[in-house]
């Protein structure tokens, strides 16, 4: 176990060193992502200043929501998105075959060797929004609320990593997954807003089959003491359990697809 952890940590170190070789491109990536997010958040802020709230959420509450969403997403995506988004090419180019002849779980190798420090910009932005918003939303701090904040963030990161894993695993069987990533990000865009503003069918979808509602909507609602449709008093538990359950489901799906892998190129 210690050897495995040391190996995974070494993979992360190699990846970080590789990325730091190209400083200019890293700074440009951070800046570009910062501007991209700032643009989206500004448009939400403009809507809020015009209509005062979105579905009953004020700007400080929305800032906490967006910060939570951005940070949870970044923590999950920094390990998974960039490398698993290219799974189609990895499979078709035969690179996945190379992983299977090494004495390591190929998912673990991909995830840790592709650790992406470009998400530093997301993490700073998410943290900044949370730190700015928390004093303004009147949360009464206690052990359960602190657990909700940190546990909810970890659960959010797990959901992101699980969804990306599930989508990428499709490439092992179909040799295609890129269009599914497009679909995933369409729903991900929806999860940037409180689920309560959508029609009931979308609310239900975001809390069940596409569990992106647990990325920020459910935990932040619990922190703010807002009611969560369909979940009610079960919401705090569901929020913390969603991430680990998503991980179990994603791991099972990955194994299912791996057993059906029939090789890629060559």
């Amino acid at each position: 176990m210690r050897e495995t952890l040391s190996l995974l940590f070494y993979l992360v170190r190699l990846r970080v060193r590789t990325r730091l070789e190209f400083r200019a491109s890293l700074v440009i990536a951070w800046t570009a992502q910062g501007f991209g997010y700032a643009g989206v958040f500004t448009s939400i802020w403009i809507i809020l200043t015009r209509f005062e709230n979105i579905g009953g959420w004020s700007w400080p509450q929305m800032a906490l929501f967006l910060g939570f969403h951005t940070l949870g997403y970044a923590l999950g995506a920094c390990f998974t998105l960039v490398q698993l988004r290219g799974m189609e090419e990895i499979v078709r180019g035969g690179e996945f075959d190379m992983l299977l002849v090494r004495p390591i779980n190929p998912w673990a190798y991909l995830v840790f060797s592709g650790f992406n420090i470009e998400y530093g910009g997301h993490i700073l932005l998410g943290l900044g929004l949370i730190v700015w918003a928390l004093p303004q939303v009147g949360i009464v701090w206690s052990l359960p609320s602190a657990l909700m904040l940190f546990g909810g963030l970890i659960s959010s990161a797990f959901i992101t990593a699980s969804c990306i894993t599930v989508v990428s695993a499709c490439a092992l069987v179909l040799q295609r997954a890129r269009y599914l990533f497009g679909l995933y990000f369409d729903f991900w865009e929806l999860s940037r807003y409180p689920a309560s503003i959508f029609a009931p069918v979308f609310q239900l979808a975001l809390l069940t089959v596409i569990p992106l509602g647990y990325m920020a909507y459910v935990p932040v609602s619990v922190l703010l003491g807002r009611p969560v449709p369909y979940l009610g008093a079960f919401a705090p538990f569901a929020s913390l359990a969603a991430g680990p359950l998503a991980v179990l489901a994603a791991a099972a799906f990955w194994r299912f697809c791996l057993r059906r892998y029939q090789g890629g190129g060559g």
């Binding site: 190699l14 180019g93 002849v101």
Partner: peptide
């Protein structure tokens, strides 16, 4: 076993060769 695919590399493109060897040492214990 050892495996070499002539058209695919197991080496880390942007790092010195010695780093790939060290990774191999850890992978294969």
């Amino acid at each position: 076993i050892g495996v070499v695919f002539g058209q695919r590399t197991q080496l880390w493109w942007d790092l010195p060769l010695s780093d790939s060897f060290e990774l191999h040492r850890r992978l294969y214990r």
